[in-house]
């Protein structure tokens, strides 16, 4: 297996390291505000991976929705539950067991599925397709009645229901005068 050093591999390495290092920071940091900042680093790395995979619209949505909304929401959640950000013990009792299970699962996935099926000498040879598809095609697919307009509308209903539900759950009933 020879690895060519091109701009693509260098970019992949940079964003891959950002993604994984951010993820490890999220699960191991004691201070939850720092964990949320690591989460932003990791999500930004995933946005770069989307760019490499020829999905620029998804990368923009990743930055807008994940970093701009979800990460900020999580930071608000951390700030609203003060006193819980520095727990003396980060992991619960089955932390060691969970680490073993997760590493075992990763190795099984790697050796059992990814390398035999999709690997360099794998059963299925996958070459990158030439790109004819743009953001315009994604927009058409989302509103075309032959394709995804019904799931699109269901997603809007889901967002509305989640918004109403979140307000109803988080509203403070006792402090109303």
């Amino acid at each position: 297996m020879n690895i060519e050093i091109t701009f693509e591999t260098i970019t992949f390495a940079i964003f891959g390291v950002l993604t994984l290092a951010g993820g490890i920071g999220v699960v191991t940091t004691r201070n939850l505000i720092h964990a949320a900042l690591y989460l932003i680093v990791s999500l930004f790395g995933v946005a770069g991976i989307f760019i490499l995979l020829a999905a620029p619209f998804l990368a923009a949505i990743q930055v807008l929705v994940y970093i701009g909304a979800i990460a900020i929401l999580i930071i608000f959640g951390v700030m609203l539950t003060r006193g819980m950000t520095h727990l003396p013990e980060r992991f619960n009792r089955q932390g060691g067991l969970a680490a073993v299970v997760v590493i075992g699962g990763f190795v099984v996935l790697l050796v059992g599925v990814i390398l035999p099926v999709w690997g360099p000498n794998g059963a299925v040879a996958a070459e990158a397709q030439p790109i004819f598809m743009t953001t315009r095609d994604l927009g058409i697919a989302l509103v075309d009645k032959e394709q995804f307009v019904l799931p699109f509308e269901v997603a809007s209903v889901l967002l509305t229901a989640a918004m109403v539900g979140a307000i109803a759950i988080a509203r403070d009933d006792e402090s109303r005068d």
């Binding site: 994984l20 999220v26 989460l39 727990l87 980060r90 992991f91 969970a98 680490a99 997760v102 990763f106």
Partner: peptide
């Protein structure tokens, strides 16, 4: 797969519910 495993470890092992959400 590596990112999924890291996230799964966070879900299984963290005590704080917000960390589980992350």
């Amino acid at each position: 797969a590596a990112l999924f495993s890291i996230g799964a470890f966070g879900v299984l092992a963290r005590r704080n519910a917000i960390a589980i959400l992350m």
